[in-house]
């Protein structure tokens, strides 16, 4: 065998910035699975990578924008959706995807999320929900389950968690789904659907953080966390998102919303076209 024939090329290499590897994520983290599903979705849709912009905020998953081989921007904490809104409206041909965490998108950035969904800005938001602030070492966040142990809930969490799919649906998102890092095929299919949808699409990707959340909450390994996903999750497509709260023994997954509504960009284009006829 010649040396050349031993050269192996990863089939998804063109989607990643190789020089940025290894990534910063811990062993067993779900972020790699989400990145994997995302690039497979791009591949299967055959999207021109020159027209994709990945925007992320601060946190573990926030580093994803540095790894995708697209135009990308790593914003301040909580602001990727607002930044992405500017990108999309300034250059509508771009496919703009926000990939960020539960704290970034729903604590510090919560206001931008609900308003972008209400406006129906034509972007896709993927939230890696790992129930905790991982980058800062394990503080509770807006999706941390009641009673969970974190470094800032040393006596157990006494805050109620956001039900993200309900929040997204109520805010006006035209496509809403939830999968876990265990549901790789469905997650990938869901991302494909979201990318093709006109308007604000939202995917909650429940992700394991064995190193911090798991370790603090009796699921020390990625396997044990994914076992929880396997045992607790139940696929119920188009069920009421209001009744899809995540609990220790139930994670309802599936598509919750898939509706048609004119996007902000479309309404803006129509308004400008109308204006043009008046100006003449």
């Amino acid at each position: 065998m010649t040396e050349k024939s031993l050269e192996l090329k990863h089939p998804y290499e063109r989607f990643l910035r190789k020089e940025r590897m290894p990534h910063i994520w811990c062993e067993g983290c779900g972020n790699g699975i989400i990145l994997n599903c995302f690039v497979r979705a791009l591949d299967e849709l055959n999207i021109d990578l020159n027209n994709v912009v990945v925007v992320s905020g601060i946190g573990c998953i926030g580093r994803i924008s540095g790894y995708t081989n697209t135009d990308s921007f790593h914003t301040t904490h909580g602001r990727p959706i607002a930044f992405a809104t500017g990108v999309k409206l300034a250059k509508p041909k771009l496919k703009v995807v926000v990939i960020s965490g539960d704290g970034d998108l729903f604590a510090i950035g919560g206001n931008h999320f609900i308003h972008a969904a209400r406006r129906n800005v034509d972007i896709t938001v993927i939230c890696a929900n790992n129930f905790i602030y991982g980058m800062t070492g394990g503080q509770y966040g807006p999706t941390t389950p009641l009673e969970a142990w974190t470094t800032t809930t040393p006596y157990g969490n006494i805050e109620h968690a956001f039900n993200l799919v309900h929040l997204a649906a109520a805010s006006g998102a035209v496509y809403v789904s939830r999968w876990t890092a265990l549901h790789v095929r469905r997650l990938k299919e869901s991302i494909k659907k979201a990318l093709q949808k006109e308007g604000f699409s939202f995917i909650e990707a429940v992700s394991q953080c064995p190193e911090i959340y798991g370790r603090y909450n009796k699921m020390k390994t990625a396997i044990s966390m994914m076992k929880w996903f396997k045992e607790a999750s139940e696929v119920r497509n188009f069920s009421d998102p209001a009744k899809a709260e995540i609990s220790p023994d139930k994670i309802i997954v599936g598509e919750f919303v898939d509706i048609e509504k004119p996007s902000y960009g479309r309404l803006l284009r129509e308004m400008k076209a109308k204006l043009k006829t008046k100006q003449k």
């Binding site: 921007f73 914003t75 607002a82 930044f83 809104t85 500017g86 409206l89 771009l94 931008h112």
Partner: peptide
């Protein structure tokens, strides 16, 4: 934040 996004576009 939106202004920055538009500028990068």
């Amino acid at each position: 934040a939106a202004v920055l996004g538009a500028s990068y576009a």
